[in-house]
C-alpha cells in the first residue's frame, strides 16, 4: 500500500490530499488541537498540533500526509512544547476558569489537564478586552477568545454568512463583528448558527443555558480531551450544545 504513513511508528492510512490531522483523527489517534475542525478550512494558527515530520516541525492540521512520512506526535518533548504554547494562550487572555460558564466544557482547559499544565508560567497580561452582550441569544466575551477563528470559518463556510473576522495583529488581534455598529446584536448571527456553537473556549456562548449541567459533571470533568475527541465523530451539522 502506498497511501500509508507513520505516526509514532504506527502505520496509518490516508487518502491523497488528507492532512496528517484528519488522517490521525480518522485512525483514532489524538493530536492536540484548538483551531481545527475537520470539514472547515485548516487555519494552522494555534500550533498545538505541532508534530515532527521527518525531523522538522510542522502543523499537523495543514500539512498533507504523504506516503512513507514519519511523524512524531506523542513525545515528551512535543508535549512540553505544546504545554508552553498553551501557557502563552492562557496568559495572553483573561482565562479565569472559576468565573467562566464554559468551565468543564472548555477545550483550552481540557488541554491544560491533558498536558498537565499547573500554572501559567509567564506573567499574565490581564488585557483589557470588550464584552459584547448585545445579542439576545449569544454572548461574546473577548476576555476568553484565543483567536482560533473557528467561528469566522464556520460562519463563512457552513452558515453562509460572514459574521466574524479577526482584526489587528499579533498580541493585539481581536475578534471583530461584521455589523454597522460592530455589535453582535446588529449582526445576522442566529442562535442556531454553527458559529454560535463552535467556540472551543467560553468566548461565544449561548445565553440562558449556562448552568444546565452543573460543574463537575461536564464533558471534560468526566472525559479527557483525547478520548472524547477520538470517540465522538465530528459533524459539521449544527449540533446540540453540551448544555442542552
Amino acid at each position: 500500500m502506498s497511501n500509508m504513513f507513520f505516526i509514532d511508528g504506527q502505520e496509518i492510512a490516508f487518502t491523497p490530499g488528507q492532512t496528517i490531522m484528519d488522517a490521525a483523527l480518522a485512525a483514532g489517534i489524538y493530536i492536540p488541537h484548538l483551531c481545527h475542525k475537520p470539514g472547515l478550512t485548516p487555519q494552522g494558527s494555534c500550533k498545538l498540533c505541532t508534530v515532527d515530520v521527518d525531523g522538522r516541525s510542522a502543523s499537523a492540521c495543514t500539512l498533507p500526509a504523504t506516503a512513507g512520512m514519519k511523524v512524531d506526535n506523542n513525545t515528551p518533548a512535543l508535549q512540553e512544547v505544546r504545554k508552553t504554547l498553551l501557557q502563552m494562550l492562557f496568559v495572553e487572555g483573561n482565562h479565569l476558569c472559576p468565573t467562566c460558564l464554559k468551565s468543564g466544557d472548555c477545550t483550552l482547559q481540557a488541554l491544560g489537564y491533558h498536558l498537565g499544565m499547573l500554572d501559567g508560567h509567564f506573567p499574565p497580561f490581564y488585557p483589557l478586552r470588550e464584552v459584547d452582550a448585545s445579542h439576545p441569544d449569544v454572548l461574546l466575551d473577548r476576555d476568553r477568545c484565543i483567536v482560533c477563528a473557528l467561528c469566522v470559518r464556520a460562519s463563512r463556510e457552513v452558515d453562509g454568512k460572514n459574521v466574524f473576522a479577526i482584526g489587528r495583529r499579533g498580541a493585539n488581534a481581536r475578534l471583530i463583528v461584521n455589523s454597522p455598529s460592530g455589535k453582535l446584536g446588529d449582526s445576522d448571527l442566529a442562535a442556531d448558527d454553527l458559529a454560535a456553537h463552535i467556540c472551543p473556549v467560553g468566548a461565544i456562548m449561548p445565553k440562558n443555558h449556562g448552568f444546565e449541567v452543573p460543574i463537575g459533571r461536564r464533558t471534560f470533568d468526566l472525559h479527557s480531551v483525547a478520548e472524547s475527541d477520538v470517540a465522538t465523530p465530528v459533524t459539521l451539522k449544527k449540533t446540540e450544545h453540551h448544555d442542552e
Partner: peptide
C-alpha cells in the same frame, strides 16, 4: 506551595484588573 486558582493566576480577585 501556591494553593488554588488565585495564587496561581490571580483568580476571581484578578477580575478587578479591568
Amino acid at each position: 506551595i501556591a494553593v488554588g486558582a488565585c495564587a496561581i493566576n490571580g483568580g476571581v480577585p484578578a477580575m478587578r484588573n479591568h
